[in-house]
Amino acid sequence: MSKANLTQNNSFLIDMTKCTGCRGCQVACKQWNQLKAEETEFFSGEGYQNPPAMSEYTFTRIKFRDYQKNGQNEFAFYKEMCMHCNDPACASACPVGAFVKTEEGPVIYKAERCIGCRFCMIACPFGVPKYEWSKGLPLVKKCTGCYDRIMEGLKPACVTACPTAISYGPRDEMIKEAEQRISRYPDRYINKVYGKEEAGGTAVLYLTSLPFDELGFKPVTMRALPSYTWSALRLVPTIFLTVGAGLSALSWINHRKDRLKAEQEQLAIEESVNPKEEN
């Protein structure tokens, strides 16, 4: 549905085998977007994870997995953010088109359009859009893909801050790079580029050494989500016309019957009694 050339979309390749969990990205994002710090207590999750979830104040977050597997420690880190889907559910769901998949890659949000129905939040398979619950007239908040930065020739803040794990570039190149890494280091990676097909393809791609479900990735469909609703919605004009025309015809026929009957009756009456005019 978007005009963007999806192969050239700017995409994030996040290699979790290279992520050190330093959370530079998390802070850089807050700094660039001037987001408020959340009040936390101790840790909310495994390892040093904080805050408890992405929110109106937190567009990206490192999730920690701290556990033991076959007697070995696993300490894994994974960056959560908007996936900037090729065919975004949020954009298709929004009644006023406040979400837009840009040609450059980021899925951006036009706050001035938003009416605040939160359907985008229901629609997004990754649970990304968040709401300004603290406000009387709240808006939706989510990772902007640093659209403002990339339009000025910079890379997203989180990418710039990341010492090791994130590459950024055209989607086809990122996929190629990801696949090359898998074939070059087959022992290091699970043979899968997450995001290549998930939800119809996303502009955030992941590589990992641990199974994705173990890392807490939710299972998602491979089909672009908008297609699910569109398969019903595309019938709208047909249904409208069919129902409209059908009922009109039905009632026309019925009323014609009535009318004919009435006329006949009338005629009969007129024939039998010659009516007199009152007044």
């Binding site: 710090a37 959340e38 840790f43 904080n50």
Partner: peptide
């Protein structure tokens, strides 16, 4: 990672306090 040394430079920064409070 989230804090610096004796902490004056990071324990006063809300973004870092959020991470390790």
């Amino acid at each position: 990672s989230e804090h610096w040394q004796a902490g004056a430079m990071t324990r006063n920064l809300p973004w870092l306090v959020e991470l390790v409070p």
